[in-house]
Protein backbone atom coordinates (compact mmCIF):
# COMPACT_ATOMS: atom_id res chain seq x y z
CA UNK A 1 0.00 0.00 0.00
CA UNK A 2 2.70 2.49 1.03
CA UNK A 3 4.86 1.46 -1.89
CA UNK A 4 2.02 2.09 -4.32
CA UNK A 5 1.30 5.45 -2.71
CA UNK A 6 4.90 6.64 -2.88
CA UNK A 7 5.02 5.44 -6.47
CA UNK A 8 2.06 7.67 -7.27
CA UNK A 9 3.71 10.63 -5.55
CA UNK A 10 6.88 10.07 -7.57
CA UNK A 11 4.77 9.74 -10.72
CA UNK A 12 3.00 13.02 -9.99
CA UNK A 13 6.25 14.86 -9.30
CA UNK A 14 7.83 13.53 -12.50
CA UNK A 15 4.81 14.66 -14.51
CA UNK A 16 4.87 18.12 -12.96
CA UNK A 17 8.56 18.45 -13.77
CA UNK A 18 7.93 17.26 -17.32
CA UNK A 19 5.09 19.76 -17.69
CA UNK A 20 7.33 22.59 -16.50
CA UNK A 21 9.95 21.56 -19.05
CA UNK A 22 7.21 21.45 -21.68
CA UNK A 23 6.19 25.09 -21.04
CA UNK A 24 9.61 26.52 -20.19
CA UNK A 25 9.88 29.72 -22.24
CA UNK A 26 12.12 29.25 -25.29
CA UNK A 27 12.29 31.25 -28.49
CA UNK A 28 10.40 29.60 -31.37
CA UNK A 29 13.60 28.74 -33.24
CA UNK A 30 14.88 26.69 -30.29
CA UNK A 31 11.44 25.50 -29.27
CA UNK A 32 11.38 23.18 -32.30
CA UNK A 33 14.11 21.09 -30.63
CA UNK A 34 12.24 20.79 -27.33
CA UNK A 35 11.93 17.09 -26.40
CA UNK A 36 8.44 15.78 -25.62
CA UNK A 37 9.39 15.03 -22.03
CA UNK A 38 5.82 14.48 -20.89
CA UNK A 39 5.28 11.81 -23.54
CA UNK A 40 8.59 10.11 -22.61
CA UNK A 41 7.74 10.23 -18.91
CA UNK A 42 4.37 8.64 -19.53
CA UNK A 43 5.84 5.89 -21.72
CA UNK A 44 8.39 5.20 -18.99
CA UNK A 45 5.75 4.82 -16.31
CA UNK A 46 3.42 2.73 -18.43
CA UNK A 47 6.31 0.38 -19.22
CA UNK A 48 7.36 0.43 -15.56
CA UNK A 49 4.02 -0.42 -14.00
CA UNK A 50 1.28 -1.01 -16.59
CA UNK A 51 -1.08 -2.22 -13.85
CA UNK A 52 -1.23 1.24 -12.31
CA UNK A 53 -0.78 3.69 -15.15
CA UNK A 54 -2.88 3.19 -18.22
CA UNK A 55 -4.89 4.86 -20.95
CA UNK A 56 -7.19 6.75 -18.55
CA UNK A 57 -4.35 8.46 -16.70
CA UNK A 58 -2.64 9.20 -20.01
CA UNK A 59 -5.83 10.87 -21.22
CA UNK A 60 -6.05 13.08 -18.15
CA UNK A 61 -2.37 14.00 -18.32
CA UNK A 62 -2.76 14.90 -21.98
CA UNK A 63 -5.84 16.98 -21.28
CA UNK A 64 -4.01 18.82 -18.54
CA UNK A 65 -1.14 19.53 -20.92
CA UNK A 66 -3.58 20.88 -23.52
CA UNK A 67 -5.22 23.17 -21.00
CA UNK A 68 -1.90 24.49 -19.73
CA UNK A 69 -0.34 24.89 -23.17
CA UNK A 70 -3.46 26.55 -24.57
CA UNK A 71 -3.44 24.17 -27.51
CA UNK A 72 -6.53 22.58 -29.02
CA UNK A 73 -8.13 20.74 -26.11
CA UNK A 74 -8.02 17.01 -26.64
CA UNK A 75 -4.98 16.92 -28.95
CA UNK A 76 -2.40 15.72 -26.46
CA UNK A 77 -5.09 13.72 -24.65
CA UNK A 78 -5.80 11.69 -27.77
CA UNK A 79 -2.13 11.25 -28.68
CA UNK A 80 -0.99 10.25 -25.19
CA UNK A 81 -3.92 7.85 -24.69
CA UNK A 82 -3.05 6.19 -28.00
CA UNK A 83 0.65 5.90 -27.16
CA UNK A 84 -0.20 4.55 -23.70
CA UNK A 85 -2.45 1.94 -25.32
CA UNK A 86 0.29 0.76 -27.69
CA UNK A 87 2.74 0.65 -24.77
CA UNK A 88 0.35 -1.44 -22.70
CA UNK A 89 -0.08 -3.86 -25.56
CA UNK A 90 3.65 -4.33 -26.00
CA UNK A 91 5.24 -3.62 -22.61
CA UNK A 92 6.46 -7.21 -22.12
CA UNK A 93 8.41 -7.13 -25.32
CA UNK A 94 9.64 -3.55 -24.91
CA UNK A 95 10.93 -4.17 -21.39
CA UNK A 96 13.15 -7.01 -22.55
CA UNK A 97 14.82 -4.85 -25.20
CA UNK A 98 18.17 -3.18 -24.70
CA UNK A 99 18.22 0.60 -24.30
CA UNK A 100 19.31 1.06 -27.90
CA UNK A 101 16.40 -0.96 -29.27
CA UNK A 102 14.03 0.82 -26.91
CA UNK A 103 15.29 4.17 -28.17
CA UNK A 104 14.33 3.24 -31.69
CA UNK A 105 10.82 2.28 -30.59
CA UNK A 106 10.54 5.49 -28.58
CA UNK A 107 11.30 7.35 -31.79
CA UNK A 108 8.36 5.59 -33.43
CA UNK A 109 6.05 6.24 -30.46
CA UNK A 110 6.89 9.92 -30.19
CA UNK A 111 6.48 10.11 -33.95
CA UNK A 112 2.94 8.73 -33.64
CA UNK A 113 2.30 11.15 -30.77
CA UNK A 114 3.52 14.10 -32.83
CA UNK A 115 1.50 12.99 -35.83
CA UNK A 116 -1.75 13.01 -33.88
CA UNK A 117 -1.01 16.22 -31.98
CA UNK A 118 -0.13 17.91 -35.23
CA UNK A 119 -3.28 16.66 -36.90
CA UNK A 120 -5.49 17.98 -34.11
CA UNK A 121 -3.62 21.31 -34.05
CA UNK A 122 -4.16 21.42 -37.79
CA UNK A 123 -7.93 21.51 -37.16
CA UNK A 124 -7.35 24.91 -35.59
CA UNK A 125 -5.00 26.03 -38.36
CA UNK A 126 -1.77 25.57 -36.42
CA UNK A 127 -0.31 22.46 -38.03
CA UNK A 128 3.48 22.60 -38.25
CA UNK A 129 5.65 21.26 -41.07
CA UNK A 130 6.58 17.55 -41.01
CA UNK A 131 10.22 18.53 -40.47
CA UNK A 132 9.37 19.80 -36.98
CA UNK A 133 7.69 16.52 -36.08
CA UNK A 134 10.69 14.48 -37.21
CA UNK A 135 13.17 16.72 -35.38
CA UNK A 136 11.11 16.61 -32.19
CA UNK A 137 10.79 12.80 -32.34
CA UNK A 138 14.56 12.46 -32.91
CA UNK A 139 15.46 14.74 -30.01
CA UNK A 140 12.96 12.99 -27.75
CA UNK A 141 14.34 9.56 -28.66
CA UNK A 142 17.85 10.82 -27.94
CA UNK A 143 16.66 11.87 -24.48
CA UNK A 144 15.24 8.43 -23.67
CA UNK A 145 18.46 6.76 -22.36
CA UNK A 146 19.11 9.82 -20.21
CA UNK A 147 15.62 9.67 -18.77
CA UNK A 148 15.90 5.93 -18.02
CA UNK A 149 19.22 6.42 -16.22
CA UNK A 150 17.88 9.39 -14.21
CA UNK A 151 14.75 7.53 -13.20
CA UNK A 152 16.77 4.48 -12.12
CA UNK A 153 19.00 6.67 -9.94
CA UNK A 154 15.96 8.36 -8.37
CA UNK A 155 14.23 5.05 -7.74
CA UNK A 156 17.32 3.53 -6.11
CA UNK A 157 17.89 6.61 -4.03
CA UNK A 158 14.37 6.65 -2.60
CA UNK A 159 13.84 2.85 -2.77
CA UNK A 160 10.69 3.15 -4.82
CA UNK A 161 10.28 0.32 -7.30
Amino acid sequence: MTSSWSLSVLFGMCLLLALLIAIYPLSPSISVYRPEVLCLMLIYWVLHSPQQFGVGIAWFVGMFQDVVEDGVWGGHALALALVAYICMMSYQRLRSYSIGQQTFWIFVFVGIHQLFVNWIQGLDGYGGPARHMAVSALVSAACWPLLVICMRIVQRRYRIF
Binding site: L19, L20, I23, W59, G62, M63, V67, V68, D70, V72, W73, G74, G75, A77, L78, A81, I120, L123, D124
Partner: peptide, 28 residues
Amino acid sequence: ALAIALIYSKTDWFSGARQRVSDFTMPL
Protein backbone atom coordinates in the same frame (compact mmCIF):
# COMPACT_ATOMS: atom_id res chain seq x y z
CA ALA B 1 -10.62 13.33 -26.96
CA LEU B 2 -11.42 13.62 -30.63
CA ALA B 3 -14.91 14.90 -29.87
CA ILE B 4 -13.50 17.52 -27.50
CA ALA B 5 -10.92 18.54 -30.09
CA LEU B 6 -13.60 18.93 -32.75
CA ILE B 7 -15.89 20.92 -30.45
CA TYR B 8 -12.94 23.08 -29.42
CA SER B 9 -11.82 23.93 -32.91
CA LYS B 10 -15.18 24.19 -34.67
CA THR B 11 -17.37 25.87 -32.05
CA ASP B 12 -16.81 28.40 -29.29
CA TRP B 13 -18.54 26.47 -26.50
CA PHE B 14 -15.31 26.25 -24.54
CA SER B 15 -14.37 29.91 -24.75
CA GLY B 16 -15.78 30.71 -21.30
CA ALA B 17 -13.98 27.79 -19.69
CA ARG B 18 -10.78 28.79 -21.50
CA GLN B 19 -10.87 32.25 -19.96
CA ARG B 20 -11.38 30.77 -16.52
CA VAL B 21 -8.66 28.12 -16.59
CA SER B 22 -6.04 30.68 -17.58
CA ASP B 23 -6.07 31.90 -13.96
CA PHE B 24 -5.17 28.41 -12.79
CA THR B 25 -2.52 27.63 -15.38
CA MET B 26 -0.71 30.96 -15.14
CA PRO B 27 1.14 30.13 -11.87
CA LEU B 28 3.00 27.45 -13.84
